[in-house]
Amino acid sequence: MSSSPDPIFFRAGKAGTKRESRKLGFLLYEAIHGPLVLLKAVYRQLQIVPLLFPWRILPSASCALSGPVHLISLAELRMKISSEVTCIAAASRGFSKPRKARVTPRPSTVRVP
């Protein structure tokens, strides 16, 4: 925010710290991946509609719905959709898209007993 040279940011000019919004990868991401995620989210939103009529997706129902919706609970479906929405929200912030967290935790010291 402060444009004047500030001693606390003396490392900011180093290689690898280029503003993310100007990186080609980010621009491509914005152009391609964002809309794809949106489409996926819309598709999943549409998938939830049949769940408003649970009797129609019971295995014994005469008019069974095809696809994997049978196999997942409402809670699971909601979680999946929520995660997509979260992803869209992160993408909408654009410049602040964080790196995906690694699955493996890192200990606070390499000399962990």
Partner: peptide, 24 residues
């Protein structure tokens, strides 16, 4: 979610060893 913050990432220090070595 509608607040847009533009960041430049900096090297991250997550261990005691990195901190001792002044990685950042």
């Amino acid at each position: 979610d509608l607040v847009e913050v533009d960041y430049d990432s900096l090297p991250v220090v997550t261990t005691i060893e990195e901190s001792k070595q002044n990685k950042a």
